Simulated assay, not measured.
Amino acid sequence: MTTAVCPGSFDPLTLGHVDVVRRARTMFDEVVVAVARNSSKTPLLTADERVALARAAFADLDGVRVEAVDGLLADFVRQQGASAVVKGLRSGADFDAELPMALMNRHLSGVDTVFVVGDPALAHVASSLVKDVARYGGPIDDLVPAGVGDAVRAALARTGGSAR
């Protein structure tokens, strides 16, 4: 059985993320969505919220499970017995940002990263933009899976919209 890990902070999970995970599932027997606690980011949604939202979004997809990740992705990849890391790309800028991480993960774990080109119809969808639109009261429900928009709005109300 082949396993891939699809990591991210998923703050929030978007339809772009869902697209990449669903397509990765056609390439691997199992995909583990690894919800990371990124020390360089201040999340809007708690790790528990992000895990719960991802589990709901992928509940209908056999062979996909969602786990929280603390620590190095390379360690998690080895623990899962994964043969690949899967990352989505929207543009060349994404590739430029992801390449050093892919090389470091290969150095640390021996596991390569597979880049999946995102659906062009979703190329404008980024978690940071979704949060910005929501902060100003704009519509986001067509950019995220069911339930995520409500969670984002509730988190913004709870935090006063300050998390970035």
Rank of each mutant, 00 (worst) to 15 (best):
M1I: 15
M1H: 11
T2R: 12
T3K: 15
V5W: 02
V5N: 02
C6I: 14
P7R: 01
G8Q: 05
S9T: 10
F10M: 07
P12M: 04
P12I: 03
L13I: 15
H17P: 13
H17K: 02
H17V: 08
V18F: 11
V20E: 14
V20R: 09
R23I: 12
R23K: 07
A24P: 06
A24Y: 05
R25A: 13
M27H: 15
F28T: 06
D29R: 10
E30M: 09
V35N: 03
A36C: 12
A36L: 15
N38H: 08
K41N: 10
T42W: 11
P43N: 14
L44Q: 03
L44A: 01
L45M: 08
L45N: 02
L45H: 01
T46Q: 07
A47Q: 14
A52T: 13
L53Q: 08
A54Y: 08
R55E: 09
R55C: 06
A56V: 12
F58H: 01
F58S: 01
D60N: 00
V64S: 00
R65D: 02
R65Q: 02
V66E: 03
E67Q: 10
E67N: 13
E67V: 13
D70C: 10
L73F: 07
A74H: 09
D75K: 11
D75H: 09
F76M: 00
Q80D: 05
A82I: 12
S83V: 15
S83H: 14
A84M: 09
V85M: 08
K87Q: 03
S91Y: 03
G92W: 06
D94R: 03
D96S: 06
A97E: 14
E98Q: 00
A102G: 05
L103F: 10
N105P: 10
R106K: 07
H107E: 02
H107W: 04
H107K: 01
S109H: 12
F115D: 01
A126N: 11
A126E: 06
S128L: 13
K131H: 11
D132R: 07
V133H: 03
V133C: 11
A134I: 06
A134S: 01
R135M: 05
G137D: 05
I140M: 06
D141H: 04
D142P: 14
D142T: 11
V144D: 08
P145Q: 00
A146E: 07
A146F: 04
A146G: 06
A146Q: 04
A146P: 12
G147D: 08
D150C: 12
V152K: 02
A155E: 12
R164Y: 13
